[in-house]
Design a protein around this nucleic acid. Structure first.
Lengths: 186, 186, 186, 186
DNA sequence: GATGAATGAGACTTCATTCAT
DNA sequence: CATGAATGAAGTCTCATTCAT
């Protein structure tokens, strides 16, 4: 996928991957305010190298988010493949409680803080919405999800749940179930 | 009430109120990243004047948020006084849809972005939680709110709902109802 | 002395004196970096009142220093009147050890930091030099001060001794005697 | 010597040296109140460059002072090596009259204005005191320096002499000899 | 005359981005 | 290509001085 353009020299690819990983860890742990120099330092490269791969800070952040979303989608696809009527709920719980707990950047990204996903990464956004659509339909067919709900609604609710988890981590598990209850047919 | 201390000179009070109003509008519209100088400019005062009233940027933000929370609490108290078993839901809908729609700073504040409300404004926080407790109990007595929920849970869910409204304003009305449905007894 | 111009209303005179006293204490204790607002606050007056009496911060500082120098001269005159051949040394010891220990502003002033005494307060400067001249002559007549020394030399050495006292207060008493020994005939 | 760490790129070393030189000249000529921006401008670099090499203004000042002190110590060591019983006096005269005449920052630094040498640069301070100790002992052995004096006393007296030179440059040569006379045995 | 609020220039510092090595 | 030094535009905050009350 992406745009191979030119296969990138081996060391360059290694650097790119390392920067991406470090940026992910750092944004997740400390938010978007971390200077690029700091990320470069932690990745063991010069600031210039970061800028070679990601021309602006926003580009770097976007790449991090895109990577995250793709991983989320991968996990969701696996759950979908099981055919479990509870797959949607299992997916949302996992994202909120496991990812959200360690990844402040993810919540921000989904909420549109720092980057407009839809505009910046239409493909990732589409894939994500498509997954949610599929999970919703699976549930609706099995009667575990109320009618009238679509994939983008789930994304909105996921946003909210992540924000809730970020601000009230202790109550998040219980309250996520409360919120998800609202998605079930009465 | 509050702290009379000294009634503040007429011009000072005028400027303080204007700065607070401008800061509110500006934070609401553009988030926390706006420079103090810009707020001063819009308020038609020198930067020094802002700093006289609010020694640090956080102090200003805190004052804005405190003001907002107090207004929210006032509205909530009115709804509570009607004794309507739906008062909790009416309150949350109003906060999310009417306030949240124009007030990005409010969502940030409740989510703890930029200021730790509980630490910075314990009184405002307490009053808010107390209101939510009362609204919850009213609903529980009338059977419109499920057992096991407490005021701070509502605050967490409100946070989430505001984040949701911020990122998906078009679907917010419908989805807020979905979320609130989760609070009702099954 | 000074310029009576108009005898100053009683309350104004009181304010002026209070500001001067507070400014002296504050500069002595904390140096010249203290804001005028702080001095006004400690004096229990508005900043505007300070500026009415002392149009600039330098004017205030100058007045403080002039006042100090006058007091120094008064003490020196008393010692001179005793006719004691050691009067010069007694005077210098007292100024360095007793005044210098509590009055950083004095050392700064004599050293020309913050204000040029000779230019700003020619009268005070002249009176001070005249005193030193008299003390030197008294000592020279009695054979306790070497020839070739004049009043302004003493002022220079006093400056140095005050600087020494400021930076090494513990050794100042002993070392002041060492320095003063250099003034005695061999 | 020093800390090789990494040899610093050629251009960086050049800029660092230039900033240090300009800072030295500027502090010497105009005191510590000069803004960093002004030093950057005179050095022909951006303010950020100054901050890269010297993270705070104090760091810059400290580096300037440390450099000065090291040069002083070097000169003193040379004089010591001659074994001349007058070495201490020659050293002090040279520092006061040649250095002090053009270097107000040096006097300030030794006096502890703006930076606490002992705390900030313990090595430089120790080396300086050790040199003075050696010079004193050389003189005491030869009978040119009175007993009971130690290196730190000389530092205190040097401080004073520099202050004297700063405020009364014309009389400094003569009066320095007077002060130094006090150090000789009677 | 006194007050203290307002002013606004300017200090220190940070950091996204560029570019010489 | 990688490096990391240089840049310079902001940002926050301070304070001498002025001026409306």
């Amino acid at each position: 996928m992406a745009k191979p353009e030119r296969p990138l020299r081996a060391d360059a690819a290694r650097n790119r991957a390392r920067v991406l990983q470090v940026a992910y860890d750092t944004f997740a742990a400390e938010g978007l305010a971390v200077p690029i120099d700091e990320i470069a330092r932690r990745a063991g490269v010069g600031a210039g190298t970061v800028y070679r791969h990601f021309p602006t800070k926003e580009d770097l952040y976007r790449a991090v988010v895109e990577d995250r979303i793709c991983r989320m989608v991968d996990e969701g696809r696996e759950l979908l493949a099981t055919g479990d009527p509870e797959a949607l709920y299992a997916f949302l719980r996992r994202v909120v409680l496991q990812w959200g707990a360690t990844d402040r950047g993810l919540a921000d990204a989904l909420a549109g803080v720092g980057v407009d996903i839809k505009a910046a990464m239409p493909e990732a956004e589409e894939g994500f919405i498509a997954l949610l659509d599929d999970l919703v339909k699976l549930g609706q067919k099995a009667g575990t999800v109320r009618q009238g709900i679509v994939g983008s609604d789930i994304k909105a609710i996921l946003n909210g749940s992540l924000a809730m988890q970020a601000s009230h981590p202790d109550a998040a598990a219980r309250l996520t179930d409360v919120i998800l209850d609202g998605l079930r047919p009465r």
